[in-house]
Amino acid sequence: MSVLYLVIPIALLMSGGSVAVFLWAVKRGQFDDVSTPAVRMLHDDDVGSRDPGKEPQAPGSTPPS
């Protein structure tokens, strides 16, 4: 069972990593608004735009989808 001494730290590192990612996401405001992104993702940015080179820059913390 000595493999446990290796596997448990690895498992803990992995879950620690995902907790860190979650905290980072919350701090950046990813969970502030959970209803609009569901709608926003349906839009294709390029259709109809005469200026496709310039991506709109978001004022909030979330990157443009």
Binding site: S35, T36, R40
Partner: peptide
Amino acid sequence: HCSACVWIVERLTQILPGVVGSRLDLHR
């Protein structure tokens, strides 16, 4: 109230020069 609203409001950056960002929170 809907996805068209989100779309047009967030296109302000293309419509008006000088608007750098526009982001709509539908719920609020």
